[in-house]
Write a protein that binds this DNA or RNA. Structure first.
Length: 873
RNA sequence: GGACGAUUAGCUCAGCUGGUAGAGCACCCGCUUGACGUGCGGGUGGUCACAGGUUCGAGUCCUGUAUCGUCCACCA
């Protein structure tokens, strides 16, 4: 048997194993009519991004799921890919160019896009390589990109077909404008922050009158675009003004007073200025009342030509100036401090301006209907299910989705404007003339689509849609979508209605949501704080398996988690533990076949039965997406049951003279180790594969072995329980010795008084080994001469050792009394329950029986403890 | 203004369908135990935020309160 190093070295293993997997083609998703498909599409990371811990979290969850399903016999497919990430990428490239003093406008659209593609090709592979270091078992031959030929075709098809169905339209409507990115944004791309500011109360005089109304605003500069004043139709204070006009100060424009139910009589003055071009509500009201639309901001958020003398001023300079001028006019009634929420751009954090602009929209209402149904009726389930509420709340209230962006990087909108007849030609193929008037004077829309428009199609565009492909047939709908709750609206919601609309079927059955990874102080990791942790460095230090296990065990679904190096270290230690346990097994191995022996010892049946239960529970946990719980159980089994107990238990046989016993111990050790490696493999793929390859095995790779499940053949519940009795005796003796500071080298004669003589006879050798006993005597009667003996008691036995000279009698008495006291307390509680009629009649039988058994055990323990106490006195 | 989450050992967190609380780290006492000191054995430490309720029984279910956090909202 080859010599293995004493510590596990991930670096020596990971890339070698990964290559082996790749060579074997085990990641490939194959259409197999005999098997059920299990499909995951990766949430595509930004093509120019770098792997961060959030990705590591996401990918690890997916890889665990896909590996389990693969081993469970599904035809597993995990499709990888990257996202062009419109604004984010364009900003990055523009920044890079700016360093060289170049703007994108200097280059022009075509040249600029060349630069972005160059950038993409340079950095596009980096993130893919980083995903591999985690052990991700993606089918790399199917690597996709949201702007590759196929995905682009899908985008084109979707745009055109939605346009044809009237679900995409172009309109001049209120959108969120980011003056820094110089593009429209969807509602989802705007974050709301509370800012402290002011309410400015302004007098608008009624025309030809001294009468005036007072309106309040947080954005006084927008008054330049006011085209009306609204009051409630039933408001007695203003009823007489309805239909009259007021004079807009500064602009001296005559604007109507209109009545609309929207106005709240009790809020403020009950009188609202109407700025249809710069406020969504005013826009709607304006439409109802035919108010003039006056846009006063340009794309840099400077006042435009409609703003009179304020033209050219930045929005905040204009605000100052407007306030100042109103004050001078005496029309500023008061300034009231207040805090209100302002929208900011999710990419650059600039305060966005609501303004009207001709943009493209997706009509949400018809799409939302079924998207709500499938989540409500369980055709798609969310884990954890509390996200259903968040989702439905959003979907019920979603406004039309603004999908056009004034960027260059992305899918250019397939719409052509005719300069002759004004018709818009939207087409699957690039047209050379207007479809209406046949004029060749057509020009293409300059804008591109929201990056999320293409990600919304990801579950089917990656499988070949719009073509009818066998892949699509077999692998769609996908099985599980794993993603962070932070993109539920951006992505999950849009995939759902897109899948339903274009595939007539949900895009996935289950969505597994996870939270964010924060730093050790609970702060979000960010570039500006510089508190980011690089997963590549973590892998370098602790190994990918340790990072994966840390992530999986440190978290419950949907919740955020903090990252601690210490936890990775602990998981690295766990990997090392497995390594050394395996090393032990290999060092003792003289067999070359993995099979169970015919004759099993008690401890063999114990470990096999424990393993069997573990396999059962782990499978159940997987079915419920309780990955962390499953991983913890495997951890405990390996460390406690297998290493700390079972390996120690086999040593007498392995080191003994009985060849048959030696072989049988080896067989069980090997069997349980091998099966446990399978259970653990999805969580720690590298080390488990490496060890498995070094053990006697059939088959090519652990990663394609069958996942263990419960088996009647190795189910020994009674033996398991019996052996726990021996273990309890061992623990009791160890505890006793530890209290007296007896070193392991001191091996006293152990006398065991028990009614279960046969059991203890069978476990005798382990008592001497694990409890550091010399000779062991088993009897059913207490020793006649107790002198010099110290005792320890369990439910099933009293154990004596001649160590009295080491005992502090006083402490000994105190210890027993303390133990006795808790035992008596417990007994009285148990008896209380048992004398409770309600409990006896209403609790399940098994619970009552367990309680009875507990009472019996406690009584036995108390008797034993009392005897010991008596013997001391 | 709504909705959601968190509150459990000194720290960070688990705890599935209700049946007398667990882990890792930290801490204390021992240990050259023939795989592993990245280890072994033993131990200290919790009125499960608070107040009610349902139940034979509540960390777990219900109601309310507090603190922290998150999301949503067309809050002149």
């Amino acid at each position: 048997m080859k010599e293995l190093p004493k510590t596990y070295d991930p670096k020596a293993v990971e890339s070698k194993i990964y290559d082996m997997w790749l060579k074997g083609g085990y990641f490939k998703g194959r259409i197999d009519p005999e098997k059920e498909p299990f499909t995951i599409v990766i949430p595509p990371p930004n093509v120019t991004g770098q792997l961060h811990l959030g990705h590591a979290f996401d990918e690890t969850l997916q890889d665990v799921l896909i590996r389990v399903k693969r081993m469970q016999g599904y035809s597993a497919l995990w499709i990888p890919g990257t996202d062009h990430a419109g604004i984010a990428t364009q900003i990055k490239v523009e920044e890079y160019l700016r360093e060289q003093g170049i703007s994108r406008h200097d280059l022009g659209r075509e040249k600029f896009l060349e630069k972005v593609w160059e950038w993409k090709n340079q950095y596009g592979d980096r993130i893919v390589e980083q995903l591999k270091t985690l052990g991700s078992s993606c089918d790399w031959d199917r690597l996709r990109f949201t702007m590759d030929e196929g995905c682009s075709r899908a985008v084109r098809e979707v745009f055109v077909s939605l346009y044809e169905k009237g679900l995409i339209y172009k309109g001049n409507r209120i959108i969120n404008w980011c003056p820094d990115c110089r593009t429209a944004l969807s509602d989802a791309e705007v974050e709301h922050e509370d800012h402290s500011g002011y309410f400015w109360h302004i007098k608008y005089f009624v025309k030809d009158s001294d009468e005036y109304v007072v309106v309040a605003t947080t954005r006084p500069e927008t008054m330049l675009g006011d085209s009306g004043v609204a009051v409630h139709p039933e408001d007695e204070r203003y009823k007489h003004l309805i239909g009259k006009t007021v004079i807009l100060p500064l602009m001296n424009r005559e604007i109507p007073v209109i009545a609309d139910e929207y106005v709240d009589k009790d809020l403020g003055t009950g009188c609202v200025k109407m700025t249809p071009c710069h406020d969504p509500n005013d826009f709607e009201i304006g439409l109802r009342h035919n108010l003039e639309q006056i846009l006063v901001l340009d794309e840099d958020a400077k006042i435009n030509e409609n703003g009179g003398k304020y033209e050219g001023l930045d929005r905040y300079e204009a605000r100052k100036q407007v306030v100042k001028d109103l004050e001078e006019l005496g029309q500023l009634v008061k300034i009231e401090p207040n805090s209100h929420s302002v929208g900011t751009c999710y990419r650059c954090d600039t305060i966005v301006e609501p303004l009207t602009s001709p943009q493209w929209f997706v009509k949400m209402e018809p799409l939302a209907k079924e998207a709500l149904e499938v989540v409500r009726d369980g055709r798609i389930s969310f884990v954890p299910d509390r996200f259903v509420k968040i989702y439905t709340n959003w979907m019920e209230n979603a406004h039309d989705w603004c999908i056009s962006r004034q960027l260059w990087w992305g899918h250019q909108i397939p719409a052509w404007y005719c300069s002759d007849c004004g018709h818009i030609t939207v087409s699957r193929e690039d047209p050379d003339k207007c479809e209406k008037c046949a004029s060749s004077g057509i020009t293409r829309d300059e804008d591109v689509l929201d990056t999320w428009f293409s990600s919304a199609l990801w579950p089917f565009s990656t499988l070949g849609w719009p073509d009818k492909t066998p892949d699509l047939d077999y692998f769609y709908p996908t099985s599980v979508l794993v993603t962070g709750y932070d993109i539920i609206f951006f992505w999950v919601a849009r995939m759902i209605f897109s899948g339903l609309e274009h595939m007539k079927e949900v895009p996935f059955r289950t969505v597994l949501f996870h939270g964010l990874i924060r730093d050790d102080k609970g702060r979000k990791m960010s570039k500006s704080l510089g508190n980011g942790v690089d997963p590549i460095e973590v892998i370098d230090t602790y190994g990918a398996d340790a990072l994966r296990f840390n992530i999986i065990t440190g978290n419950s679904p949907g919740n955020d988690m903090r990252y601690y190096d210490e936890r990775c270290e602990a998981m690295r230690n766990f990997a090392n533990k497995i390594w050394n346990a395996s090393r032990f097994v290999m060092m003792n191995l003289t067999i070359d076949k993995n099979e169970l022996p015919e004759k099993l010892e008690l401890e063999d049946r114990w470990i096999l039965s424990k393993f069997n239960n573990l396999a059962k529970e782990v499978n159940e946990n997987f079915d419920k997406f309780e990955l962390g719980i499953a991983a913890n159980k495997i951890y405990d089994f390996i460390w406690d049951s297998y290493c700390d107990w079972y390996i120690e238990l086999t040593k007498p046989r392995l080191n003994g003279e009985d060849e048959a016993a030696k072989i049988s111990a080896q067989k069980v050790l090997l069997y349980v180790l091998t099966e446990t490696l399978k259970l653990l493999h999805p969580f720690m793929p590298f080390i488990t594969e490496e060890i498995w390859q070094a053990l006697p095995h059939e088959g090519e790779a652990l990663m394609i072995e069958k996942y263990p499940e419960f088996s009647e053949d190795i189910s020994f519940p009674e033996d398991e329980a019996s052996f726990e009795i021996i273990m309890n005796a061992v623990r009791a003796v160890r505890a006793r010795r530890a209290e007296m500071n007896v070193p392991p080298s001191k091996k006293p004669h152990l006398t065991i008084v028990t009614e279960k003589r046969d059991l203890f006879e069978a476990g005798l050798i382990y008592l001497s080994k694990l409890a550091f006993a010399g000779k062991v005597t088993i009897t059913d009667a207490a020793p006649e001469n107790m002198e010099g003996l110290v005792g320890v008691v369990t439910n099933d036995a009293k154990l004596y050792m001649p160590l009295a000279e080491l005992v502090d009698l006083q402490k000994e008495r105190e210890r027993i009394e303390k133990e006795l006291k808790t035992a008596v307390q417990n007994l009285s509680r148990t008896k209380g329950k048992l004398s409770n009629q309600g409990f006896i009649s209403k609790a399940p039988e098994s619970v009552v029986a367990a309680e009875r058994e507990r009472a019996e055990k406690l009584q036995a323990l108390i008797k034993n403890l009392e005897d010991s106490l008596k013997a001391l006195n």
